[in-house]
Design a protein around this nucleic acid. Sequence first.
DNA 1: TCTCAGTTTCAGTAATTACTGAAAATTCGG
DNA 2: CCGAATTTTCAGTAATTACTGAAACTGAGA
Lengths: 181, 181
Amino acid sequence: MKMTPLHQEFVLHFGEMGSRWGINRTVGQIYALLFLSSAPLNADQITEALGISRSNTSMGLKELQSWGLVLRKHLPGDRKEHFTTPDDLWLIVRTLIEERKKREIDPTLSKLRELEMQGPGGDDYAEARIAELREMIEMMTEFYDDMARLETEKLVRLMTYGSRLAGLIDKVGGYLPSTKS
Amino acid sequence: MKMTPLHQEFVLHFGEMGSRWGINRTVGQIYALLFLSSAPLNADQITEALGISRSNTSMGLKELQSWGLVLRKHLPGDRKEHFTTPDDLWLIVRTLIEERKKREIDPTLSKLRELEMQGPGGDDYAEARIAELREMIEMMTEFYDDMARLETEKLVRLMTYGSRLAGLIDKVGGYLPSTKS
DNA sequence: TCTCAGTTTCAGTAATTACTGAAAATTCGG
DNA sequence: CCGAATTTTCAGTAATTACTGAAACTGAGA
């Protein structure tokens, strides 16, 4: 399992970026390795290619599977588990966004609602600020949900349409309430 | 500088979420405190409210300013520096997204382009995978750039339009190339 | 220009997170 | 159901990151 220079640089980059992406170095490297590999790899191959311990590989794969970014694959005639990334890049991106939303946004949205439930406590400014933040997050997550429901083909069409979208909306007519709450 | 229960819970939550958001606990707490405060606070007030060291406050504020999430504010008649978060939540969100893109996506886009520059090295699968990833990131960042350029009012209109956008595009006509590359 | 309130820097230390090897658990062919 | 192959868990340790106090620096008023 010797890596080509291309693999090496890619794997190293994902390792470095890992900490910024909220995963650790080896998890990033494992993902990178699987991403570039046309055939599924088993844990020993990953362990050897990255020069890490077998247990570290096991933990890394576990985390990546919990994210839905890596899939187990049984190869016939081999007792060992093998692993891949999904072929479809769009699926990967959808998964990534969904998981990050789940971990980074949803808990805060819940907390904000919970705080509002506790009713007014006298600090009008803080309460308004919290309500405003909650509304903003709701608007963005609802938009995200709508977009996530679209098939990829429509999503691509929409994204390629880019800034012209705004003009389009103008034309259709603005029956919507104004911006400021 | 005693915090109300509302402040406390909010600050604590931001502290806990900090690590998921790629900042540390105290940076999250400082931000939370400033976010809920109607008047700008000085470093000593922050230090006392959070029970952290003066130097920690200084470093946290420095980081938040580098993100553009916290602004210095000189109060007349007081020699101390004061700090606030921008009033406009949309501005805050725009800043957040822009900065995270800068830190988490742009370096990878550069790296991918760099790897492609190095020319074919024989691993067709890996090279195709990298090219596909680069194209995907380009499409998404270009879309983001388009959206970021819109005034907030239009952005709100667009987001509220949600899933109906897809139908809209259909109607206007699909002159665009098909999805699969 | 000197003073001093205020701020930043930084070396040392504490706290957290990542990684390892060994042992326990699981899985599957026989 | 047994036993070898494989995977997972976990306590201990290494590496990294966060935090502190003290010292250095800054800049406005006298």
